[in-house]
Nucleic acid binder design. Structure first.
Lengths: 232, 232
DNA sequence: GACACTACTCGTACTAAGTACGATGAGTCA
DNA sequence: TGACTCATCGTACTTAGTACGAGTAGTGTC
């Protein structure tokens, strides 16, 4: 057998760059998770030896920073001409979709201290949309905090659902974790699992639209009240 | 000098147990964060050699599981006799306080697959409170998801704030990260930072009560609407 | 009081991961 | 052709998790 396998042939010079490293890392993390992402495994994934990676990034932290910045860049930014509610809603939905594609990213999005262009640009566009709403500054701050808290928190819970977040897996997991508990303990948990979670059409994701609209309704109503009080 | 230092004297037999290991780990993580928590450092903290720890726990994962279970146990459970809104609110506030004491815990709370007695007991009491509300099952599911998403997401954002979450630190951080950006880029971000975040009385935490009550109001209103529609 | 038994503690050492340092070698241009 | 550059990699050091088994302090028994 001739050794023409990708893995065995030395890597072609010049075919790597910072962007390919970061995208390779994201691909790997999407498939395997962030914990198994090591320099050595990433090198394998890129068809390269470990130390080659350090030609393009300072260290592993810089890889994570870069990955998160690319993820922020995937999020749809609120367009400049929409009503605030439309823009904020579209961006929230997009954020949630992006976090579904990259579940490993959720806990990292807000905790990095080296924001890149993607991160900053995203936040700038978001704040801009809130400003255009004409709401009082304090409402803007509340709106920013509450919507993001909800979306990130929801994404965290979704990420915790066993794998595909589509039936089957969840059913098995629920049956394996909740149902075999010491009989009689946790009756409400067991009841809820049987009565609701294990029912045919169950879909955790439905609570997302419900919650998002509930929050946006609440913000709008509170803003209207505020405005009325100001006029009086 | 006689060697009477704690650190130098061998550890007194029998003074360690699983609980002390877990509480020691929590103390350490509260002070230093979860990443610096290593078996060796935990051993030092406990005045013991690394391998001693393995007499009480199977491995590091089991330590994390145990820590999270203890954290769940710190959360106030909704009392059985309150109105649902009171109970849910108190528990949400308590959850947020607990997550402020243990910021490292937030991303782990919902992602462990080996729940212990504290975790299960907490969730059972929570579900019980929702059941007592008499709301339709689907509302209960939405309520569970939305309130927790908000609280966990908010805690995540709070944890990301630089240290003490009390002035000073935040001011410095905002000035160091946001203000020195390439001039003219991100004008809205800079504006918001200067106009709001860097103002004297700024307190991110104020958005918590605002958001929580907004969500609870929304849930109550939606439930009332639902009930009215059912009666008709 | 001597001995054996148990439970706790620890020394040693192996594996995996991040990465410093400097060697190698492929292109490129004079 | 030879020198220079820079992408790639080999080697090796450090830190972390932890398997294995040796020591040892108490405890109970005769």
């Amino acid at each position: 057998m001739t050794d023409t396998t990708m893995a065995e042939r030395p890597h072609v010079r010049g075919s790597l760059n910072r962007d390919r490293v970061l995208h390779g890392a994201i691909e790997f993390a999407d498939r395997e998770g962030i914990e198994p992402l090591t320099i050595r495994r990433l090198a394998d994934h890129l068809g390269v030896k470990p130390m080659t990676i350090y030609h393009y990034v300072a260290n592993k932290e810089a890889i994570i920073d870069g990955m998160i910045d690319l993820v922020f860049d995937e999020i749809e930014r609120p367009p400049a001409d929409d009503a605030w509610r439309t823009g904020i809603r579209a961006r929230a939905v997009s954020l949630r979709e992006v976090l579904r594609r990259h579940p490993w990213a959720t806990p990292l999005m807000e905790s990095r201290t080296n924001p890149g262009a993607g991160t900053l640009g995203h936040h700038d566009a978001l704040v801009a949309c809130w400003y255009r709403s004409g709401l009082p500054l304090e409402f803007i701050a509340h709106g920013l905090a509450v919507v993001d808290a909800f979306v990130y928190g929801f994404a965290m819970q979704e990420a915790a659902l066993p794998f595909g977040d589509h039936q089957g897996d969840l059913t098995e997991a629920a049956e394996e974790i909740i149902l075999p508990l010491p009989t009689g303990d946790h009756p409400h948990l067991v009841r809820f699992t049987q009565e609701y979670v294990l029912q045919p059409g169950y879909d955790f994701g439905r609570s997302f639209d419900f919650g998002l609209d509930l929050i946006l309704d609440g913000l709008e109503a509170a803003a209207a009240r505020e405005r009325a009080a100001g006029d009086a």
